[in-house]
Amino acid sequence: MSEQEVKNLEEIFEARIARDEKIEPKDWMPEKYRKTHIRQISQHAHSEIIGMLPEGNWITRAPSLRRKVALLAKVQDEAGHGLYLYSACETLGISRAELYEQLHSGKAKYSSIFNYPTVTWADMGAIGWLVDGAAIINQVPLCNTSYGPYARAMVRVCKEESFHQRQGFEIMLSLCNGSEEQKAMAQDALNRWWWPSLMMLGPVDAESVHTEQSMKWKLKRKTNDELRQQFIDQTVPQAELLGITVPDPDLKWNEETGHYDFGEIDWDEFWQVVKGHGPCNKERMDARVNAWEEGTWVRDAAMAHAEKKNIKVAKAS
């Protein structure tokens, strides 16, 4: 293809996106579009799978049968999200094995929030309420993103994430309506998860490398700072409803802007965790790598068995 031809294709492509048409796997797409989407969708898929671990940590210790069942189902939903997203990613011409390899080698990133430990039961409430809450804010705009398989996966995912968010809030509510110990547990969880949740919405706009291109492709419809403000505005009244305090002395309603003003985020902490030095980065990676390595003989056996069966069928016919 000549340079001119590629340029023409690119123009047609950008015009389709501008008209809100969906791009499908078989359509022509610029290499950069493909790569950017592989990166973002796989990061998202990895986050779902790594995200199973901090909550999985409390399945065996859930305080009631009802809560245990709800938590198991939630963590299982996250596995399902991982599955749809890996499938969406595979439509861009990369295999699941390659995607795992990128995760296990540390080449691919995942959401940093999952590198914090879950130390009490209240963390199951705080994660659902804040982390799934922030995820929804990030993801709802993606239901209209330009790449068809991703947009469709996000519609399903978002429905379940809002259910998770309500479930998490409901755990917090039970704690806040409970004993002094329970209420203290809820406050402690908010203290620990508040700032990492704000960081989940990404670095400040000035430092965000991908924003402009991503906006054009509808991979992003609002900037990180806008999303963060939306999250804070939505969450602070919920904390008030619960009767617990957001751990930010600078947090204040601003009559003029119609938004909450908030304090300085510790970006050094953010980058430390992103670079692999958070409290649980190593544990999370080890857990994934172990599960994968210990599962090798099982996956090999399943393949060998399927082959044997195929041969039998072939011989019989």
């Binding site: 799978i49 199973m52 069942v69 299982q76 599962g295």
Partner: peptide
């Protein structure tokens, strides 16, 4: 329930969690 998130692949992880959910039900 101990295995949730640690299965040999996603599909078996989901299936075993399903069984666990049935048993708790």
């Amino acid at each position: 329930g101990e295995l949730c998130g640690h299965g040999p692949n996603l599909e078996t992880d989901i299936a075993l969690t399903n069984i666990s959910l049935d048993l708790f039900g």
